[in-house]
Nucleic acid binder design. Sequence first.
DNA 1: CGCCGAGTTGACCATGTTCAAGGTGGGTGG
DNA 2: CCACCCACCTTGAACATGGTCAACTCGGCG
Lengths: 234, 234
Amino acid sequence: MAAPAAILSPSSFGPLRSMAPGVVWSALRPEEPEADAFRAPGTVQHFLPDRQIFADGDPADHFYRVVTGVVRACKFLSDGRRQIEAFYVTGDVFGLEAGLNYNISAEAVSDSTVIAFRRKAVEALAQKDIALSTQLTTAVMRALGHARSHALLLGRRGAVEKVASFLNEWATHSASAGVIHLAMTRQDIADYLGLTIETVSRTLTQLERDRLIALLNTRQIRLCNRAALEDLAA
Amino acid sequence: MAAPAAILSPSSFGPLRSMAPGVVWSALRPEEPEADAFRAPGTVQHFLPDRQIFADGDPADHFYRVVTGVVRACKFLSDGRRQIEAFYVTGDVFGLEAGLNYNISAEAVSDSTVIAFRRKAVEALAQKDIALSTQLTTAVMRALGHARSHALLLGRRGAVEKVASFLNEWATHSASAGVIHLAMTRQDIADYLGLTIETVSRTLTQLERDRLIALLNTRQIRLCNRAALEDLAA
DNA sequence: CGCCGAGTTGACCATGTTCAAGGTGGGTGG
DNA sequence: CCACCCACCTTGAACATGGTCAACTCGGCG
């Protein structure tokens, strides 16, 4: 049908963005939702903030695509410590698994609308459709690339570098006129960066003192010196 | 020709272990190396310790499978800080990429023999062979699972937990009679865990004082209390 | 207006890093 | 065969970064 090659777009915060595979595609485009609806057996679902979409260990029989809102993928230690692996925004796909069960949890950050696809149905299609199968592979590889960058950040960067990296990354998604809108709380940012909420807060304040950013309110940040921020994230 | 289904094995330190796809398979088995050699255009290569196999940013026109030895995948910051993402052992595949270029470097840890496969050739095969394509996808998803666990470790675990996790992980590869052999230096371990060499050393000493391990020599460690180690890594 | 959850700030503390000596052991050459 | 070497590792003491604990502020909403 439509959308053959340009399906896989380059950038991504949540790493699986724009992975829409062939037949599933049409259902994912709001402007023509009914056209191929039968061939794309996705069901629309809505989640309030902090509602779980699936849990680590659940049977992985669906995967999802974000229509609106922001979703986080995270893992927990037994004592409650949390690591957020990725934030998914409009167009991102998440919940693809190698095994029978999810190895990560997914939760809505903000009010979110997603489409759920039956894994078996898509796998069956992938059996017949080489292009779809290739796209799945490529998309997961791209997710792996994101995970690697994230590991470098978590293991080897200091607090200022981490926060600067986060601002740069998120700016590619929600910046307009140099102002970014954060969908997530300080706690989410801290758990994404492997820091505490206090360190995130202090670091943002420090970046503001240094005139790299301006904290308009808790969810709006103006990037005043993009070049300097990118240097910090180098 | 042989080996259809059991190709994808479960466990893995380096995350892509045992991903040998169909036609490539036979060349990967030392016991029958010539049988399908033409159909599997892999070339054997040898690397001395610390030799680079490919660099972050290089054109990604081959991928590799470890025959003997240990390989590390790592990323660097501009000032030289290093993060090791994975160690690959016999049977592991590495160097699969979504884009045109590698987004990570690979280096031999020990004396290593690998087989290099032309990416284009395998991609062409995957176009015709659904099973191969599916296996690629599954394998990369498994790698992603490893990366997620690693991120949790890097972001949210303390030094003792990190070292204990490493010992447990590596024990699944090179343990016999409760003794593991380390192919890598303390620096490699430190860069895998997001620590310094001194902290790794001190933590090992502490684990020995606590009778969880015995340091036979710098490369041989006896695990004296596997249960306690697994608790620490919980 | 007042409440409450989220965020900020400050003082203190702990974990892990840095810097600086020593050790150790595997390999080489006398 | 032994001595020496050198890279790797260990250990210690001082230090720094980020975490913890606690008080306070802000802002949105009933």
